[in-house]
Design a protein around this nucleic acid. Structure first.
Lengths: 214, 214
DNA sequence: CGAAACTTTGAAAAGGATCAAACTTTGTGG
DNA sequence: CCACAAAGTTTGATCCTTTTCAAAGTTTCG
């Protein structure tokens, strides 16, 4: 299992590549993204340590999107051959990995809804709620506070907005005293308020361990 | 395996439900959707016969979205218990089903990009291209022509646009002689042109059978 | 300490939304 | 098979959210 350090803004895997391994994020923060004709970038997911962001390449060899680090990160590559053997020997592991990709897909769906049918302020609040829950789940938050490893440009590309508007919306959420944001540190001042503002319901994150009787 | 006829606009499975079976679409056209606070609806996927649109419920019991028919449809329900036994006995089937949900996820990603970073005309062209390829794959197209089982309202909810704007964009694509659309029948007059207009690259549909060496 | 990278703010422009109404197609019952 | 109602499509006009462009602050880091 090869371990590698990745610099910010560097591709871990690029769009179009044929992949024979998947990468386990050990430390840092990465995103999956695609580039569109007009030059824009759309981020389709963020990933925290413990995730295997390109697990799908186990069955879909050709990358239909890129995977890049947003902060200095560490990844460990797992050969698909090894993964495949693991899945055959331990069907429970296979089920777990499958479930993992299904939660991924659930988050994609939630993002489609967010980007497709919500206004900028709601979108932003929703994303901040999602990140709060997910960072909390991997022990990366203290109280109602977490480090946001994304620039406003990255948030913009995740939300389908311009950087300028992301900034305005953040100012708005600050003015409403829903969040505090300084030096990339988000503090949620009013969790109920932020959830309401973002129409956030954590159901889609499927964190409830009792949900899958597997 | 229980078979059921479903009327247009009727839910097959509803958001929030706990599901112990998945549904195989035998005939018709269905979509997955969510409703947002402001009353709007966002469609996150369309499904053609042969798909198992809620396969994810095998591992995520609680539905985080609804599944509804858009035209009169026929579905067959498969108990999760049976599916689970099938997967344990035939790991090849498990891999195939897993792959299927991964292609689903790839389509979700493409939709995030479409809705997040493309203008209305490009979005629409992209969707029409996707549907062309997918209908063709299941033998539901003749030449460059297929029946579109969705109203303009449905297209709007899939693209994150208003119905009015969907109409205008369709008129535009017609005026450009890229498509013909009458009585719900789409004919692609200029496939290259439409692909260009929609920045469409079929890569994400992963239809190439050689791609997965299993 | 200085340069580069980010964030913040202002003003003008544009792409889509909304509202309202006319037109067309589809499906149903007489 | 026609007539009518309901559903869906088309068009026009106005409004509004978000984009774009431009420039000034502010951090961050070598």
């Amino acid at each position: 299992m090869r371990v590698k350090a990745v610099a910010p803004d560097a591709d871990i895997v690029s769009e179009g590549e044929y992949s024979s391994q998947s990468c386990l994020l050990v430390d840092g923060f990465v995103c999956r993204y695609a580039t569109v004709g007009s030059g824009g970038r759309q981020i389709m997911s963020f990933h925290t340590p413990g995730d295997i962001p390109d697990l799908q390449s186990l069955h879909l060899k050709r990358m239909d999107h890129g995977l890049m680090a947003l902060v200095p990160s560490t990844v460990a590559f797992i050969q698909h051959g090894d993964l495949r053997r693991l899945c055959l020997s331990y069907p429970g592991v296979a089920a777990l990995l499958w479930r993992d990709t299904l939660v991924d897909a659930a988050i994609f769906r939630a993002w489609i809804v967010n980007v497709g049918r919500r206004d900028a302020r709601t979108r932003m609040a929703h994303l901040l709620c999602e990140l709060a829950v997910r960072f909390d789940a991997v022990g990366l938050s203290t109280g109602h506070s977490y480090r946001l490893p994304a620039r406003q440009t990255d948030l913009a590309d995740a939300l389908g907005l311009s950087t300028v508007h992301v900034n305005r919306v953040l100012m708005e959420l600050r003015a409403e005293r829903l969040i505090k944001l300084e030096a990339r540190n988000v503090t949620i001042l009013d969790w109920d308020g932020l959830q309401r503002a973002g129409e956030f319901d954590a159901l889609y994150l499927h964190v409830d361990p009792n949900e899958d009787p597997g």
